[in-house]
């Protein structure tokens, strides 16, 4: 019993010695997730407004596009971006490919969330706004978006948390992010439970503040 405890403490010490690799992986996860959240959020927002608009052709096209990506695995999409796009002449390094794939999938999910928020606003209010002379853009900005945004914050944050966790797929094209760093460490310290618990804590440290913040925002309104 004493021996296993000493052995475990030894392993923990070794894991701590590996902190540069783990922190590097953590950093990469944060950076690539952040890009996915910001770019995906902005693009997804614009797509969502288009999706919920009354221009049927636009709505249909956006819907078809987002359905394709929401209905297929991110890993597969990542491979398409990284391995298949070069055949069409687009060469990408793994970081750019990863950022593109994550931003794209994020945008597709955000688009549906934003569209459903917009659709949830009762049309009567918008008729009243139109009847008082407000332009389409003003109706969107003053009446629709303030209410829709408040409504969709929990779903949006949930989506971003999923993105952070999904970001581990970029390890498949060679990026050293948090999960991959775990694999590297476990080569030298063959205690999977220990190593991946640490990795898990790494993800939790990123995700928990988002979940907490989302709940606070919800209560505020």
């Amino acid at each position: 019993m004493n021996e296993t405890l000493i052995f475990l403490l030894d392993q923990i010490k070794s894991v701590i010695q590996f902190h540069p690799v783990i922190l590097k992986g953590l950093g990469m996860t944060i950076v690539v997730s952040l890009i996915g959240i910001v770019v995906g959020g902005i693009v997804g927002f614009a797509l969502g407004v288009g999706r919920a608009s009354s221009y049927k052709a636009l709505s249909f096209l956006i819907g078809a596009y987002t359905d394709i990506f929401r209905g297929t695995p991110v890993l597969v999409q990542l491979f398409v971006v990284y391995f298949i796009l070069p055949q069409a002449g687009v060469e990408l390094d793994s970081f750019t490919a990863g950022a593109i794939a994550l931003s794209n999938i994020s945008a597709c999910f955000v688009s549906e969330i934003v569209a459903s928020g917009i659709r949830a606003i009762p049309v009567g209010q918008l008729e009243a706004a139109a009847a008082s002379g407000l332009s389409r853009f003003q109706r969107l900005r003053l009446i629709m978006l303030p209410q829709a945004t408040r409504m969709i914050v929990p779903s949006l944050v949930g989506q971003f948390v999923l993105l952070v966790k999904d970001s581990s797929v970029v390890s498949a094209i060679g990026l050293l992010e948090l999960t991959r760093s775990g694999w590297i460490v476990v080569q030298s310290i063959p205690n999977g439970l220990l190593v991946f618990s640490v990795i898990g804590v790494g993800y939790f440290v990123i995700c928990y503040p988002m979940l907490y913040w989302s709940r606070k925002l919800e209560k505020k309104h």
Partner: peptide, 27 residues
């Protein structure tokens, strides 16, 4: 043209005063 709806259609996220002044300010 002022229009009054059967379902009132007030903006729920704005106070009575804000509801009433919105179009004045923006239109």
């Amino acid at each position: 043209l002022g229009f009054v709806f059967q379902q009132f259609n007030l903006y729920p996220h704005k106070t009575a005063l804000e509801n009433v002044t919105l179009a004045l300010i923006y239109v």
